[in-house]
């Protein structure tokens, strides 16, 4: 899932400066699942904004709502009130949701309340870790299910650097060395030959190298889109 983290309150408040009537909009997708941008958090943020409104003489009127996903058109129909009724919408979705919604409602500013941080999974209650980088060229088959791109802080493709230390990364002793994990797993399974093979420099075109990415599913796509 896409992990999001709430922005510092002051940063949010700064972006709200020009507005009075604000909708805090939770997203029922990843942001809810990672417990940062669901309706509950929208309710809490709305409450914070109302609380700060008086002392800071901001005259904010804040409501909250949440929809199933902010990255799909149809769910917008479930909004209790149209975004057009507000001066701006503070979206608690990932960057995708914020942009998608502002495209749907071009007349209403959609502001991000969140920082979109990584693709991750919950490893324990309240703990999420990065598992995928979205590089567009998955090598997990070679590394036996542990991604060197996402889980090595240098995205190295041929093995650990000299910074690997007791299984941890040089960047932080809280961080596992991805290559240490890969090595351990391959060694355990007798598959070190996969490690021994030189990996050519990564083709970053599938990552961001070739600019904005797009996926077209021929069997689903409408005719015009296909030609475009």
């Amino acid at each position: 899932m896409i992990i999001t983290e709430r922005k510092p309150f002051d940063e949010i408040l700064e972006t709200l400066k020009p507005y009075t009537k604000v909708l805090v909009l939770g997203c029922g997708g990843c942001a809810t699942v990672c417990l940062t941008g669901g309706e509950k958090q929208a309710e809490e943020l709305a409450s914070q904004l109302r609380l700060v409104s008086g002392p800071k003489k901001l005259d904010l009127q804040v409501e909250f709502d949440s929809i199933t996903r902010q990255c799909d058109r149809e769910f917008a129909e479930n909004l209790k009130q149209s975004p057009d009724n507000y001066d701006c919408v503070l979206s608690m979705a990932c960057g995708v949701g914020v942009q998608f919604m502002s495209q749907l409602y071009p007349d209403v500013p959609f502001l991000p309340a969140m920082n979109t941080t990584f693709y991750g999974a919950g490893v324990a209650l309240g703990v999420w870790e990065e598992y995928c980088h979205g590089c567009g060229d998955c090598v997990l088959a070679l590394t036996d299910g542990i991604c060197p791109v996402a889980r090595c802080s240098k995205s190295l493709v041929n093995g650990p650097c000299g910074g690997t230390n007791d299984g941890k990364c040089e960047v932080s002793s809280d961080m596992d060395c991805g290559w240490y994990l890969i090595y351990k797993r391959l060694a355990e399974k007798g598959k070190l030959d996969q490690f021994r093979k030189i990996q050519p420099p990564k083709d970053w075109r599938k990552d961001r190298g070739a600019g904005v990415r797009r996926m077209i599913l021929k069997e689903m796509v409408e005719e015009e889109e296909c030609q475009a």
Binding site: K154, V157, N158, G159, C161, G163, E170, S172, Q199, K202
Partner: peptide, 21 residues
């Protein structure tokens, strides 16, 4: 060494190639 260790931790680390590359 990773940029995080140095005096410009805000820099974008490149690592397009690794030492083998």
């Amino acid at each position: 060494d990773h940029v995080a260790m140095g005096d410009h931790p805000e820099a974008k680390p490149v690592f397009d190639l690794d030492s083998v590359g």
